[in-house]
Design a protein around this nucleic acid. Structure first.
Lengths: 276, 276
DNA sequence: TTGACAATTGACCGGCTAGTCATTAGTATA
DNA sequence: TATACTAATGACTAGCCGGTCAATTGTCAA
């Protein structure tokens, strides 16, 4: 594990307990067993640390969800979506807590727009799921439905994040699937119209450029140990620079990296880019 | 306006913008146009200020909701509940933002249990509403239903609290009433059983004693300007010490203070105590 | 006008903060 | 072993924090 990863891991524990503002760099370095100077070899500032944390987990989370929603049978879609969501929340509960603690209008502008963009990205995934599930029927109600889903996600996660209750994940998910289907099939009053959503979208949410994808992939490769996954990622990077491989090979390479814990974000970007 | 109220008002503006930790006493006093020393004449510490803020607004909010839910016709109940909730949120949007910003596991232990208790109190109001509305039918599903309602409240309030969108309150409330009724009448899978709720309740939520009510009322009287409301409250306090008045008179006095902005909490306590 | 008292101030305290950098420790090569 | 390099340290700075309190100002009855 690199020093950077160590710091992120230990800092996250403290942030989840005390919040970002209330946690000092000194506390973090003490908790890591390193000196204060060493911290600033890995991160330019305390702000850069929290940005890195949020990027790391949100990319992974979004990528996970996106994968689940784009694959699989229609009848399992909703179940898999909720399951993956809550599974992710409980697996990375420290991060989920941090995210609940440092919410809207966060301290610095960059972070706020970052969180906003990840939120938008999640919303898009949910919307595409809704369209796949309910099609035309949900046209006017899709935003309301996505807000309900987000509401379920946040209130029910409180049970195990804040109160640390042991939960039956399967039952929870089945109960939410039922609620969601009930709403989708019987709702008639639409509150959130297209225009309202467009008002939130003024600050554009642009697609990442080819250069950005290459940069992301390159950085990722540097941080990886030698492995099949690293080889696959390097070949895919080559393919970004000079397309040459057969689609089937690309698909195989993507499959290779899909489940590697440190490849979720590049895998997501590459899958989008290659149109798989 | 007393100095205390000035500080609370101005501090709340800053807390909503920057959060509690990130706002210094110096900033607050500058914003008020007073000296730092003057702050400590009104509050023993910065912590005491946030406790006072939370008490002030949560008491008022809970009292408002409780009143709406205990009065009125059954068919308007749900509508009035949501309407009052969102009306309160938008009227006191700074406080609502603060509440979203400083959530679970808050800095000091006292504050956390305070928030927890207010949350429980709100939940009880919602539960009693559910029972009145759906009766036996909702027996196993009442906790799930209350969680859904809380979910709707938090996600939909984001629209105007964070994104400051102009909203059609009536339409919003009607759409939520529809959703709630749909779930109440068609849900079958119960996820949150009694036992789970009992696990959260270990730290008892005791009823306030007569002494506590008298103390609260007395303090409230001190802070009030001379008025019919103050007279009414003083008579009710006398009634607490030595019961003498006719029930009809008590009911009238309660009605007098019900809508005075600084009497919400004592009115709530007194209504409970006198069983109206 | 005086004197007694309450309200208000802001310089000050010890302690903690984010961030820096000269110094030292560790390591790999020649 | 000597050299050249990087990795890591922690004392240090400047500044802000919550909180205190002696000194000042304002108020009002005598």
């Amino acid at each position: 594990m690199t020093k950077k990863q160590l710091i992120m891991e230990k800092a996250l524990e403290l942030f989840a307990k005390q919040g970002f503002e209330a946690t000092s760099v000194q506390q973090i370095t003490d908790h890591c067993g390193i000196s204060k100077g060493a911290f600033y070899l890995s991160f330019k500032s305390k702000d850069e640390l929290i940005v890195a944390l949020i990027d790391h987990f949100m990319r992974q989370f979004n990528a996970d969800i996106d994968f689940v929603v784009s694959e699989g049978k229609k009848e399992d879609l909703l179940y898999n979506f909720y399951y993956t969501t809550f599974h992710s929340f409980s697996k990375h509960s420290d991060f989920a807590k941090l995210l609940m603690k440092e919410p809207t209008q966060s301290f610095n502008e960059e972070l706020f727009s970052k969180l906003h963009n990840y939120n938008k990205s999640l919303e898009n995934v949910i919307l595409s799921m809704i369209e796949r599930l309910y099609g035309e029927q949900s046209k006017d109600l899709k935003y309301d439905l996505s807000y309900c889903i987000k509401g379920f996600m946040s209130t029910y996660s409180e049970l195990f994040l804040v109160y640390k209750l042991p939960i039956d994940l399967d039952l929870l998910v089945r109960s939410l699937v039922e609620k969601t289907n009930l709403l989708a099939k019987n709702m008639t009053i639409s509150f959130i119209p297209d225009e309202l959503i467009q008002m939130l979208d003024q600050p554009l949410n642009k697609e990442p450029s080819l250069e950005q994808i290459i940069e992301t992939v390159s950085k990722n490769i540097e941080d990886m140990e030698d492995s099949i996954e690293k080889e696959s990622l390097m070949l895919l990077k080559q393919e970004l620079l000079e397309p040459a491989l057969h689609p089937a090979i690309i698909k195989g390479l993507l499959a290779n990296i899909q489940h590697h814990p440190h490849c979720k974000w590049p895998a997501y970007l590459l899958r989008k880019h290659f149109g798989k």
